[in-house]
Amino acid sequence: MKPKVFAAFVGPSIFMMLLFIAFPLLSVFWNSFNVTQPIYETVEVESCTAGFLEQTCTTEMETRPVLNEDGEIMRQTEFVGLQTYRNVLEMDRFWEAVSSGSWTGLQNIDFWAALRFTVMFTLITLPLVVGFGIGIAMVINNASQFIRGPVIFISLLPFIITPVIGALSINWLFRGDGILTALLEWWLEQDLALFAQAWTIELLMMVYRVWHVAPFAAIIFYAGLQTVNQDSLESAVIDGASRWQRLRLIIIPHLAPLIIFVAMIHLMDAYRVFEEVVGFRAEGHVISLQWLTYDFLKPDQAGNRSISRASASAMLTMIGIAILLVPLLKRTWRDHKGTH
């Protein structure tokens, strides 16, 4: 294919990606070092109220934004270097908390709390998703041909559901005296308030995530199970391998590339955890990195969006993505080398 023809085929796609992915990245990078804010001026204001015989007048210093000729607030963009990063990271509070060994002090700083939850969430759900995925795939594979279709249909439901709605539906089962909270209370014979403290909410979020992603893993592993070499299984039986040995020595190694694939996808997606915080209304207790950026981007009461802080926290989030991507890119590179 000639370069010109190739360009014509991929051109529109590249153009879209450059304009809407690469350019915003540059814009975020730029914004994280700059702050745009209204110009304020301090003026002396004399306010008078009617009083007896004469007016009562008070003079106050008032800070207000400067307006331009059209009556709009004037804004200026200022280069601040790493200041915004310092504001997001709050390093002095961080070191203070670390040196005094205070975990709660650390958890009161938004960024570090978000980082702690995001990493924990990612690492805890990963083995659960892979484990449940393999388990479900194997029992589906074990089921008779007739019920596989309906079972796969049911299994797809948690995967396909809108994440916010899925989180909400789990939320409704547990919130207040929701049906499952009632069940747990009856079983444990004690009063539960699952949305009153952080760790129970975190647990529910992880339960939700595993419920949501396990079907995806299961379907991929199920497809992998169809291609297990039956001959090696049979020879293993002849050699006297137990069921467990066959699973450990033949089936799991066969699934290994798929396990890596699922793990990679899951790491990328779990690191971006966001919808759970919205669906469980957890922002008072637990937040994630992506939610932090989202929160900076939302207008506050005065209608201002802290674009600069959002950019800084976005850049910091991407450091994690970069670390996650390195092994994946290495692998792709190796495959590419192998094929050429």
Binding site: M1, F6, V10, I14, M17, F20, I21, F23, P24, L25, L26, S27, V28, N31, T36, M268, Y271, R272, F274, L289, Q290, T293, Y294, F296, L297, R305, I307, A310, S311, A314, M315, T317, M318, I321, L324, L325, L328, L329, T332, W333, H336
Partner: peptide, 28 residues
């Protein structure tokens, strides 16, 4: 071609980006 391979790699990196990062770039 090698260019096609690199396009795929860049696309893979873009796939991993959190959407909030991109939105932070669009909003202003």
């Amino acid at each position: 071609s090698t260019l096609a391979f690199w396009i795929l790699i860049v696309a893979l990196i873009f796939r991993a980006l959190p959407h909030s990062v991109l939105v932070a770039g669009y909003l202003p």
